[in-house]
């Protein structure tokens, strides 16, 4: 056994750590991509001038909401999404 392992290899989705969930108000967003730039996890998707949030690895740090120049992102208690689908991932 040689200690060389293929990467990436992700066994858990760190989105499960999240206490606060970023919620995008699309009508306020002008696609400036500041949130995409500053997301430590690379959890913001960008396509055709707009953004969406991939919650699998979003830890809910809140940098995107704080840095958004148009306040188009809000951090919402994760617990309020329970049972709505898209909640905490294993």
């Amino acid at each position: 056994m040689i200690p060389v392992l293929p990467t990436p290899h992700l066994s858990s989705r760190t989105g499960a750590w999240r206490m606060l969930r970023p919620v995008l108000e699309a009508e306020k967003c002008n696609g400036c991509l500041v949130c995409w730039l500053f997301c430590p996890e690379g959890s913001i998707r960008r396509e055709n001038g707009s953004v969406s949030i991939d919650l699998d690895y979003c830890k809910g740090c809140g940098i995107c909401a704080r840095e958004c120049p148009r306040r188009a992102l809000r951090m919402v208690e994760e617990a309020s999404f329970m049972g709505e689908g898209g909640g905490k991932l294993a």
């Binding site: 990436p8 992700l10 989705r13 760190t14 750590w17 999240r18 500053f38 997301c39 430590p40 996890e41 690379g42 699998d56 690895y57 830890k59 809910g60 740090c61 809140g62 940098i63």
Partner: peptide, 17 residues
């Protein structure tokens, strides 16, 4: 780099990304 175990809001992982 994606899916690391860095703390939420880690500056280092953003720098590396």
């Amino acid at each position: 780099v994606c899916g690391s175990f860095a703390c939420a809001g880690c500056g280092a992982i953003l720098a590396v990304r």
